[in-house]
């Protein structure tokens, strides 16, 4: 396809400095990302960094106030609570979902009757939007008409207030999130498992390996790449989760009413959103965002360090 190359070349070839052919191709192929980086990332980031050092209500021009937003943040008890809740949510959610997904994927990765049905059953929650989940979850969690309390009462226990109980709300939200997310992660694992060549298992079986040994020495190394990716990504997205908590804890879609009771389900993103969009403290919200960013960066760096220890790549 020489014609195409000729047409594209002049655009990228302004610099007369010699680039190897491979280098040219490299730049050309990452160009979509470069455009995004310059236009939709760098500029917004610079702007938001500036906002984080300003008093900015969106309706008037930002006013530089130095590090005041950050010092206020350090002393803000709701921010502390949101930070804790975010960690708590992530620490419950990520391992629970990963382990369950892996177990299900391994169980499904064989010729079972009704395989397709099982896969679909686990995937339907994934395709529900949070607004759908809100009404589906209510069928279970409604304190008066819900299935959960009906069963509890039948078994002679006290009904629980679920989403209006300060101690219960995060675990309940995590359970709902796992219900919704586990099928998706299971599919990722399943794709990874199906990449594991059958003959490796056969070889292991000939050597007398049992189920656990096969899992430990064949499956785990070969899907460690997928697992790693999945872990990094879930951690990052969980840390930034907003939609579930917004939809499930607010009244009539009012963001300021979400995060209750008494901030027991307040997470960082929700706090950021409330401060920024509901209370017009965009500067303060930007400061929260940057703190969140720094925390995430730290976590990811740790995970990348750990990656070298246990992820296996084919040479």
């Amino acid at each position: 396809m020489p014609k195409l190359v000729d047409r594209v070349k002049p655009l990228k070839n302004r610099k007369r400095k010699k680039l190897s052919a491979e280098g040219r191709w490299g730049f050309l192929m990452v160009s979509p990302y470069l455009i995004q980086f310059v236009v939709f990332l760098s500029f917004p980031l610079a702007a938001s960094l500036y906002f984080s050092f300003s008093k900015y209500d969106m309706l008037n021009a930002p006013k530089w106030i130095g590090v005041e937003n950050y010092t206020t943040l350090i002393q803000d008890p709701v921010f502390h609570k949101a930070l804790w809740n975010t960690f708590y949510f992530t620490i419950l959610f990520v391992p629970a979902q990963t382990i369950l997904a892996l177990v299900l994927a391994v169980a499904l990765n064989q010729s079972l009757k009704g395989l397709k049905f099982f896969r679909i059953a686990h995937f339907i929650p994934v395709i529900c939007s949070w607004t759908v989940v809100l009404y589906v979850a209510d069928a279970i969690l409604n304190p008066r008409f819900g299935l959960a309390n009906t069963i509890l009462v039948k078994l002679g226990n006290n009904p629980q207030p679920w989403l209006s109980d300060e101690a219960l709300i995060i675990p309940v939200l995590v359970a709902v999130a796992v219900w919704k997310g586990v099928g998706y992660m299971m599919i990722i694992f399943l794709a990874g498992l199906q990449n594991v060549p059958e003959d490796l298992y056969e070889a292991a079986e000939i050597e007398g390996a049992g189920v656990w040994k096969k899992f430990r020495h064949v499956t785990v190394p070969l899907i460690s790449g997928t697992t790693f990716l999945v872990l990094v990504l879930t951690t990052i997205t969980t840390f930034q989760s907003f939609e579930q908590i917004y939809v499930m804890t607010s009244h009539l879609g009012d963001v300021t009413s979400a995060g209750g009771p008494n901030n027991a389900s307040m997470v960082l993103m929700l706090y950021l959103f409330q401060q920024g969009f509901s209370f017009l403290k965009m500067g303060y919200a930007s400061a929260i965002a940057w703190v969140l960013f720094i925390i995430l960066f730290g976590i990811t760096m740790i995970q990348l360090k750990l990656q070298k220890k246990w992820v296996y790549y084919e040479k």
Binding site: P143, S164, H251, L252, P261
Partner: peptide, 12 residues
Amino acid sequence: DPSDLQSFQSPM
């Protein structure tokens, strides 16, 4: 009370 209202799709 606030937890009673949790039973209703809308507090209204």
